[in-house]
């Protein structure tokens, strides 16, 4: 048990799947908001650094929560691309957002029976509804080359998002969920940091008992 506990302490990231399995219960709503915000934030900056295009989120194993509270799309269970279908085709943002919304909903629904449904707060249900019903950007709102420092948390930005077309739109909706939008980056990073820390604590505790 001690060596496993020691090995765990070395970990600096956990997948959402590991978190769900460990607690064997769904994530809470604030964690859902936070993972959406942080994941879209890293996808957005990744796109601007011209890194390899992101893929659809296929399972909670693809979502990694890091010790510092950042959230990335990892390789999950690295599967070879299906025959003829290149896994590395650039996926439009809307497709990645839709897949993220589905996985986040499933994380909120984790452990519930097929005929049971969790009552979500209207704003979170709306976020997930918008994420899973995205509309292909018509190019006029090209997300890729927006100014890096254009924050999503401007207070005077009253343009409420009605339709999601970009990672930035998701982040704006998540920021609008807070009393002060400008708190979004720190707040959501803190929520994810705590999620990682609490899970590691439980992991280590269970390993010691084993």
């Amino acid at each position: 048990g001690r060596s496993l506990a020691a090995a765990l302490v070395m970990r600096d990231a956990l997948s959402l799947e590991e978190i769900l399995q460990l607690y064997s219960q769904p994530i809470n709503e604030e964690q859902a908001w936070a993972v959406c915000y942080q994941c879209c934030g890293s996808l957005r900056s990744r796109g601007r650094r011209g890194e390899s295009p992101s893929r659809r989120v296929e399972s909670p194993a693809d979502i990694r929560i890091w010790k510092d509270g950042t959230v990335t799309l990892g390789d999950g269970a690295r599967r070879p691309p299906a025959e003829g279908k290149s896994e590395y085709l650039h996926r439009p943002e809307t497709e990645v957002i839709e897949s993220l919304g589905i996985i986040i909903y499933k994380a909120l629904d984790y452990g519930l029976k097929e005929n049971e449904e969790r009552e979500l707060s209207p704003p979170l249900e709306q976020l997930i509804d918008y994420m899973t019903n995205t509309v292909e950007a018509d190019g006029s709102k090209d997300e890729g080359y927006e100014a890096l420092d254009e924050g999503v948390e401007e207070e005077n930005d009253k343009g409420d998002v009605e339709v999601i077309q970009s990672y930035r739109d998701v982040m704006k909706l998540c920021a609008a969920h807070l009393p002060t939008r400008s708190d979004a980056p720190n707040h959501y990073q803190a929520v994810c940091r705590a999620l990682f820390a609490e899970t590691m604590e439980l992991y280590t505790f269970l390993a010691r008992i084993k």
Binding site: E29, I102, E116, E117, R118, E119, L120, T132
Partner: peptide, 23 residues
């Protein structure tokens, strides 16, 4: 199982769970 921190209701055909399960 302890009391859950969220309310559970009957799944609704027009609810978000039904919509997402069709995706």
């Amino acid at each position: 199982k302890g009391k859950s921190l969220y309310n559970i209701k009957q799944k609704h055909d027009s609810g978000i769970k039904a919509k997402i399960s069709m995706k």
